[in-house]
Amino acid sequence: MALKRNPNASFEDTGADATVVETTVANDAVEQACEPAVASPAAKVTATTAIAKAQAGALAAPAQRIAPVLTDLKDAVRVDWDTLERLVAGTGTIDNGDGKSVGTWIKMTLMSFQDTYEVVPGDQSDEAKKLVRYSEDGVNLRESGTTVNQYLDELREQGYDKAALKHKNILVGILDETEKPSDLVGEVIQISLSPQSRKTFERYRLTRTAKVNMGRATAEGSEVIKITAEGKQFGKNKFTQLTVTGADE
């Protein structure tokens, strides 16, 4: 980004760059009047200091922060986990609320997205699943006077050493297209993104923003996204990650 001169900075005119006027007039007084004024040492110091301050101010000016695309859609509407028809990650697919696959990908026009958090014991047993709690802000548990940190301590005291806070996203929008036929096309739906899937959404926003700044894409249309189900494996655990990209990618 080009540096801009501080419009409030002032420079003392020392006359050091004044044009030397040559004359053949014999009159000494006229010759002296045509000579450039010589700056005093004090004036030179003042000018040098002013220039240094102006340059330092220009270099220190903070870079303009550009908000990632879709920032204006954050919390445009707020929903609970089951407010609308839901799509979820299945086994290598995207499923509807009845567990029926709509294919490995969908396209949707995003209307809103929000943060949501889960406190999990870090255990897949049925007993442990009953201990999952939810938070809207990552600080306090939903409908409880207990904080997230307090509950994490309680879980660890009960032997759940892997208890953790999971940061997720809920996306809300119009379902435009699915790989397999679905009655939900054209409806407003919601879909939850796991922590790993949420990172792909953030990556898409930042990448799209960079392309907009370089003139390789436009902010308009960035709300039309594609979500693809991908089978992943971490150690012995297999799971489905939902990857968010632009609809035309």
Rank of each mutant, 00 (worst) to 15 (best):
D126R: 15
I51V: 05
K107T: 09
D126N: 15
Q241M: 12
L165T: 02
I227W: 05
S135L: 10
R205A: 14
G246H: 15
T19E: 06
N8E: 04
K199E: 15
D13W: 07
P195F: 08
G215F: 10
E12V: 07
D176P: 11
K166S: 11
D82C: 03
K53N: 07
T245I: 09
G173H: 05
P121E: 04
A33T: 04
V139D: 04
K199S: 15
R5A: 08
Q32G: 02
S197Y: 04
V139L: 06
V185G: 03
K4R: 02
N6Y: 01
A163K: 01
K232V: 10
D161S: 14
K100E: 13
A16T: 04
E31G: 03
M108V: 09
V119G: 00
V88S: 06
V38T: 10
M214E: 12
V21E: 00
K130D: 14
I51H: 08
V185Q: 07
T24Q: 02
I225C: 09
R198H: 10
G159Q: 05
Y204F: 15
A26F: 06
A42Y: 06
L171Y: 10
R86P: 04
A29L: 06
A60N: 05
T200E: 08
R78E: 08
S101F: 05
A76I: 07
T48K: 11
D28F: 02
T19I: 00
K199G: 09
L155P: 08
T116W: 07
L84Y: 09
N8L: 08
K166C: 10
A2T: 04
E223L: 08
T46Q: 04
T200C: 13
A61D: 02
T146K: 02
D28L: 07
S144Q: 09
V79A: 09
A56E: 00
K53H: 08
G145C: 03
G57M: 09
T93L: 01
V77F: 03
T218D: 15
A60E: 06
L73G: 11
K238T: 15
S112V: 11
K226M: 14
G215L: 13
A9T: 04
R216Q: 14
V120G: 01
A164Y: 04
V212R: 12
L59Y: 04
P121Q: 10
E118R: 12
V148P: 12
T146G: 03
E202T: 14
G231Y: 05
N149W: 06
T93Y: 02
I174E: 13
P36S: 02
R86K: 14
L70V: 14
L175G: 00
P7E: 02
V132H: 05
G92R: 13
P41A: 03
N237S: 12
V132Q: 08
E118Q: 12
K130S: 11
N140Y: 00
D161R: 14
P121I: 01
K211Y: 10
E22D: 06
C34E: 00
G122S: 02
K74T: 12
G122K: 07
I227T: 05
A229D: 08
Q233A: 14
R142N: 09
D72C: 12
S10K: 11
G145I: 00
I94L: 03
T228Q: 14
E154M: 01
S125Y: 13
L184Q: 09
V21M: 02
A229M: 01
L110M: 08
Q241V: 07
T23K: 07
V172K: 06
